[in-house]
C-alpha cells in the first residue's frame, strides 16, 4: 500500500518532462523519463526517482491523512509508459521524428490523464490485454 497522491504527482512531473522532450527533442530528457518508467515498472513505483523526490520534498508538506492504494495499478501504468518511452528513445536516437513525436505524445496523453483526472490505465487496458492474449 502506498500514498495514492504519489503516482499522481509523479504523473504530473512526467507530463512536464515529456513536454520538454517534445520541444527540445533531447535524447537526454527522454532517456531520463525512460529510466524513471523502467525503475517504476520493474522495481516498483516507490523505488523510482520521482517517488524519491515526492517523499523527500512534497509528502512532508501535505496532510498526513491520505488514501492508500495498491502498488499494482501504478506499476502497470509505469510499464505502459515504459513501452512508449522506449519507442520514443529509438525514434530520437535514429532521428525518426514521426516515431519520436507519436510515442511521446501517447505517453503525454496518458500521463496527463493520470495526473489531472486520476485516470486508471490498468482498469481499461489490462483486461483487454489478457482477453486477447489468452484466447
Amino acid at each position: 500500500m502506498i500514498d495514492s497522491r504519489g503516482p499522481r504527482w509523479s504523473a504530473g512531473l512526467t507530463s512536464i518532462v515529456l513536454i520538454v522532450a517534445l520541444i527540445t527533442r533531447s535524447p537526454v530528457i527522454i532517456i531520463i523519463q525512460l529510466v524513471q518508467f523502467g525503475i517504476g515498472a520493474f522495481a516498483g513505483p516507490p523505488k523510482s526517482p520521482y517517488a524519491w523526490l515526492y517523499k523527500r520534498f512534497v509528502q512532508p508538506r501535505l496532510s498526513k491523512d491520505f488514501d492508500s492504494e495498491d502498488l499494482r495499478p501504478p506499476q502497470f501504468a509505469q510499464f505502459v509508459g515504459f513501452i512508449f518511452a522506449l519507442l520514443a528513445t529509438v525514434g530520437v536516437l535514429s532521428h525518426t521524428w514521426p516515431l519520436f513525436t507519436i510515442a511521446t505524445s501517447f505517453a503525454l496523453f496518458a500521463a496527463f490523464l493520470n495526473s489531472a483526472f486520476g485516470y486508471c490505465l490498468g482498469c481499461k487496458l489490462y483486461l483487454l490485454g489478457v482477453r486477447f492474449r489468452r484466447v
Binding site: I19, L22, I23, R25, T101, S105, L108, F109, F112, L113, A116, F117, Y119
Partner: peptide, 18 residues
Amino acid sequence: MNSTLIIVAVLALATAYG
C-alpha cells in the same frame, strides 16, 4: 509540425476525453 501545436492538441484531447 510545430511541437507547441502538438502539445496543445494532446493536452486538449486528453482533457476532453478525461
